[in-house]
């Protein structure tokens, strides 16, 4: 049994009168890829922001490697839903920004950044500017930037939700390939069930109003997974099972959003 990388205990969060999270607990083991799936507005981003230290919970605790967190820290890397690349920096300078904030950039940092850009498939684009890149490429930079600080825990908030369907499928396979290289501990938030099942070792299914964990689903599909995995009956069964769990909530969230 490996130690828990992340332990979130009974996190509760309110925005005004709205209870967004209700006693959410989650443990993630070292090297595990865990997805958090749920309908939009169920508090996924809020949960991730609390773990990142960008938001404080009203109750509960977050520990990384057994230490309680107090605000953002370089032990956690965040991959943002909107890529948030700085438009005045080229791709290389965007990727190295986390290391730059930590102090002087060493030759090792430069080499490491270059290697990461190579890993995410952006070799040769170092001197390009964000506006010259497609959405998929910008998300690769977003990922490389988070990996550059070599975090203990990688937090990803719907990084592929703004991409078109084909690009998204490619990025899912790519992310798996990149993850296999380093086996970082990942908490990946998405509203897409097939994405969650495809990528992860375990899926936490979220319910809304208030946000809470309905069920944990182990995904024991063999790796590496390919596009073909998505047609595997086992895969389909898992997606179906999760869909049934949140179907009611999704309907409600759709009706709610349309008010």
């Amino acid at each position: 049994m490996t130690a828990d990388k992340l332990e979130a205990r009974a996190l509760t969060k309110h925005f005004g009168d709205l209870e967004v999270l209700h006693e959410v607990s989650a443990n993630i083991r070292e090297g595990e890829f865990v997805a958090l799936v749920g309908p939009s507005g169920c508090g996924k981003t809020t949960f991730l922001r609390i773990v990142a230290g960008l938001e404080t919970a009203d109750g509960g605790a977050v520990e990384v490697d057994g230490r309680a967190i107090s605000g953002p820290g370089r032990d956690r890397g965040f991959v943002f839903q909107s890529d948030s690349l700085l438009p005045w920096r080229n791709i290389f300078d965007n990727t190295i920004v986390g290391l730059e904030l930590a102090g002087r950039i060493s030759a090792e940092d430069l080499a490491r950044t270059r290697k990461l850009l190579d890993l995410v498939g952006l070799k040769g684009f170092e001197n390009y500017f964000p506006r010259q890149l497609s959405g998929g490429m910008r998300q690769r930079v977003n990922l490389a930037r988070a990996l550059a600080i070599d975090p203990e825990l990688l937090l990803m908030d719907e990084p592929f939700s703004a991409l078109d369907a084909q690009t998204r499928e490619i990025m899912q396979v790519e992310l798996q390939r990149i993850w296999e290289e380093g086996r970082k501990t990942v908490l990946f938030v998405t509203h897409q069930i097939d994405e969650a099942v495809f990528l992860s070792d375990r899926v936490l299914v979220f319910a809304r109003r208030p946000g809470r964990i309905l069920e944990e689903v182990e995904i024991d599909l063999p790796r590496p997974r390919t596009i073909a995995t998505k047609r595997d009956p086992k895969f389909v069964t898992l997606v179906d099972h999760i869909w049934k769990l949140i179907e009611h909530d999704v309907r409600e969230s759709v009706l709610f959003e349309h008010h």
Partner: peptide, 21 residues
């Protein structure tokens, strides 16, 4: 605010936020 938050997440100090964002 997106850029500021991203930089905060990477541990930027107020001074770094001002100079770099």
């Amino acid at each position: 605010e997106r850029y500021l938050e991203m930089m905060r997440c990477f541990g930027a100090t107020p001074r770094q936020l001002f100079l770099k964002v």
